[in-house]
Design a protein around this nucleic acid. Sequence first.
DNA 1: GAATATCCTGAAATTGAATTTCATCATCAT
DNA 2: ATGATGATGAAATTCAATTTCAGGATATTC
Lengths: 149, 149
Amino acid sequence: MKRLLERIDREILAAGGKRSRSRAVVIEGFFRARDHVTIEELTRSVRESAPWIGAATVYRTLKLLERLGYAKELDFGEGARRYESNLSPHHDHLVCRQCGTVIEFEDTEIENLQDLVTRRHGFHPTAHRLEIYGFCRICASGESAERVR
Amino acid sequence: MKRLLERIDREILAAGGKRSRSRAVVIEGFFRARDHVTIEELTRSVRESAPWIGAATVYRTLKLLERLGYAKELDFGEGARRYESNLSPHHDHLVCRQCGTVIEFEDTEIENLQDLVTRRHGFHPTAHRLEIYGFCRICASGESAERVR
DNA sequence: GAATATCCTGAAATTGAATTTCATCATCAT
DNA sequence: ATGATGATGAAATTCAATTTCAGGATATTC
Ligand SMILES: [Mn+2]
Ligand SMILES: [Mn+2]
Ligand SMILES: [Zn+2]
Ligand SMILES: [Zn+2]
């Protein structure tokens, strides 16, 4: 973690940026936070220890992390984007519409078939998104499942 | 086409709605328009023959068509949603980031594998979205490809 | 350790798609 | 025709996201 933060710091400097306390707090907060956070959630969490931090800085910092390749922007169609760390390998998502739970999965067979499809159309893929929406095991069974979110 | 419009009309009536000139124009315009239109595009097109129609009506009508199962809302991450007719069978999309071209494809193998994944997690799927972003054949070959959009 | 150029900040203003409000009009059942 | 209610367009509102801006922080040069 320390290593990671130092590495990012160095990359920012190398790109002509400067260090800042607020940004450091946001970056560390992001990697400590649970995955698939919204800006609003992260801002709230980060403000517990650094109440002066403005939302604009959180927005800016996550865009920066995305540019550097450390974060990925997600959109589950909720009206607000989410972000996840880009350190773990590629995966796709199952999103529960009842409780908001997000299950990650990776399926190399699907990925291979996607490559076949793009090749068949002479298409050069740079990214893809596969999300499956529905109800998780818990929400699908019990009618009165807990509402986490 | 006439059949379709009459059927929709009947469903709206059955649901307690009323006929309206503006809505009829929007609905017909939607099915005549090219696929994957934005509200803005459809509004502009519809206003050529019915300049009094407000954007709110176009928004409302497409939400209605979606509720009735005749339209699907799409989001290619452009900032504005797109809509497509839901009459043709399910398919997914290749989206060119250069020229905006959208290629449709269907791959039953991928769909089957998706079912396997959800089953493996006890997840009950209700919908999914698979989009592959990149460059279409034309944009990938020529540097100076035409910018359609 | 100044001096200075440049970056970064938080607050507030702005943007822009989407939705809602509201007074008026249109449609339907009687 | 009458009355009830749905639908409309314009304008207002919402809300996430971005931009603006003046002040503050940081790196670099001497
Ligand atoms: Mn994830
Ligand atoms: Mn399509
Ligand atoms: Zn659930
Ligand atoms: Zn293209």
